[in-house]
Design a protein around this nucleic acid. Structure first.
Lengths: 210, 210, 210, 210
DNA sequence: GATGAATGAGGGTTCATTCAT
DNA sequence: GATGAATGAACCCTCATTCAT
């Protein structure tokens, strides 16, 4: 009886494609204009559909925002976790892989946009912020923490390493992401090179026993 | 027709005080609601004045935002620079002071709010972003860069240190600030302790010659 | 391309049944939400069909409203007229039967709904209002007028009775209907008892020659 | 601090006049288009102001409707009550005055519009319907009831008159009002003449002891 | 015939900005 | 200078109507 597609449990192939189009368009518009500044009209135009159609797939602007956040987060989750489980790597190698992954994810594409959206809008959208924390940040920190603990246990890192804040490792990738968001045109930053410096310094520091 | 205060070159003492009240109120409202979401009505109410009065001091919402950014940036500038010139400190001590200062500034008060506003709105306000970069970020990075170079020159740090991205040092304070903005309620982070871990690790890494 | 059912002269049995379902559903929704407030979606859902199907049977919302009015009016017409022709009743008995019938019709079921719809929407739908007047009101008034005239002719009522406005007789049933529409929950009114009072008083008044 | 006039306790003379203009305009537009059909734009145009100004005086469309109802009801209240207290009239005279007053009020001007609005929208606006009942209908019925009782007590009317539904008396004025709303153009009705017939018949009936 | 996704005009409401007092 | 009522453009969302399947 005329349920919106959005209210059904499942969407047909073509409906799913359309939903994805809308989310993709919304991500772009939200990035350009922010949540408040974004006009549903623009999202629809970007997606090549009529304004009303957006409302067939999302209850309202807030739900659209939520859809964007969830869709961007989804594929990010497993990637981080998979890295943590590479058993045949040394702790250093794993940390390097993890920091590099975070740097790459955060520094470009939709995760960069999401990061900015979360910083800008997160405090006004508690449930989305919580979701982002739970699904992205917490697992990431946990993965790093495990590598640190493993490195201490194996003697690769100095004693006490397990208790170091994982944010120390994630700091440079975060800095790189923010830099790209704000200053890339003004003062280009080579993220790979930044992460290189960061990893070389920090890993040396973790091995140091003086 | 008297000119608006905003159009005069100088403001009387009481006008300056009123202007500051408006900026202070606007900072709070922009932080709470974002640029688009902020209502001039709310700013005026927060400042205890009538809505029209805001327009006596600022041409429009955009100019008010600019006023906020400039006023917050102003006192921040010198502080960083002063630190860089403390000649009787070792490079390590100076870096420690600098990183700690950045962490404190960025992690609380109006600079934390400004950071968030810049990330959220910067890409839509190029001149403000440029201003922020020129007045805050560049000097900060330069100060760190100088400490790194001095440390290498004095033999305190390993060769090549001067070429390390200063963002490596600033990463942890930035991470701490973002964390506080987003997750402080969810998962409290002790910034001092984070910076401790960061500095111990990084400084050890910079001294390491292995 | 087969013609829509609505454009054919005749409907199959099952089509007629479906049309009736739609009209019945629409009556309910129009009653609940008014003409402007009614959503075709809701009518369709109430009828257990898809929204588009409504448009197979009715050109547009206006036509659906017209269908509702006509369908409700249809069975009402003959009833009133039949009463007027009961030759073996006294004038009083006939008036009593007529007033009671009007009271029952108007005070409940679809005629009550129709009355409200006509008051609410009639002035904006002249042709429907005219139709209602011609098919329902006029015959009703005529029937009463005839009873009054017959009663005067037979000496049952005082001279001049034939010239009395039939609305005098219909007033109480109308009042009862309006009361039920608006205040039944607030201050229940027993229509039978109201009509009793009304008839006793008015008939006595008509017989009075003082 | 920029409170809407509507949110203040008191309105200045000119504000009160403007508020009244809006209500007057709204009454006209609501009458023409119904509550749902009325456009705030049209109300504003009718009142000769900008659309936004309406919202300075009324929170929303619903509040505007409420304002209309309350403003129309206000002056109506006392009139009915005053009639009930005319001690030097006979019960018949008082009933006549009351029925005539109801007929005049209900049959034209803003009370006629209000009646129609209440029938159309009342069931969807419980509090307004209750207000209308409490302020207008109940006092009116009570006044009639008192006249009936007084008339029985004084012997002017037959025993049992006090128990007659007052709606019997109010029926004809109501019928006249509905008629004017719906059919005045189609079949003009002289309300005075209707009420004459009604009163002559009913009062005779009330005096009758046969 | 029946369906329901898609359309887009329309309307309620908000709020930056203006200006008479 | 200060005020806050007035303005009207803008934007979210709804829903009558269409039409491809």
């Amino acid at each position: 009886m005329t349920a919106r597609p959005a209210e059904r449990d499942t969407l047909s192939r073509s409906q799913q494609r359309r939903r994805d189009d809308i989310v993709e368009a919304a991500l772009k518009i939200f990035d350009r204009d922010g949540f408040e500044g974004a006009r549903i009209d623009d999202v629809a135009a970007e997606a090549g559909i009529a304004k009303g159609t957006v409302y067939l797939y999302f209850e309202n602007k807030e739900a659209l925002f939520e859809g964007v956040v969830r869709d961007v987060v989804k594929p990010a989750v497993d990637a981080v976790e998979r890295t943590a489980e590479n058993e045949h790597m040394s702790a250093s190698e794993r940390l390097e892989a993890q920091v590099t992954l975070i740097g790459e994810r955060l520094g470009k594409g939709s995760m960069k946009i999401l990061l900015r959206l979360m910083i800008a809008e997160g405090p006004r959208h508690d449930n989305l912020r919580d979701f982002y924390f739970r699904e992205v940040v917490e697992p990431g920190m946990a993965a790093i923490r495990k590598s640190l603990a493993d490195g201490e246990a194996s003697g690769e890192f100095r004693p006490g390493t397990a208790d170091i804040h994982p944010q120390v490792l994630a700091g440079a990738p975060m800095m790189g992401a923010i830099w790209r968001i704000l200053f890339q045109e003004l003062a280009p930053l080579d993220i790979d090179s930044l992460l290189d410096d960061h990893l070389r310094t920090v890993l040396a520091g973790l091995r140091d026993r003086s």
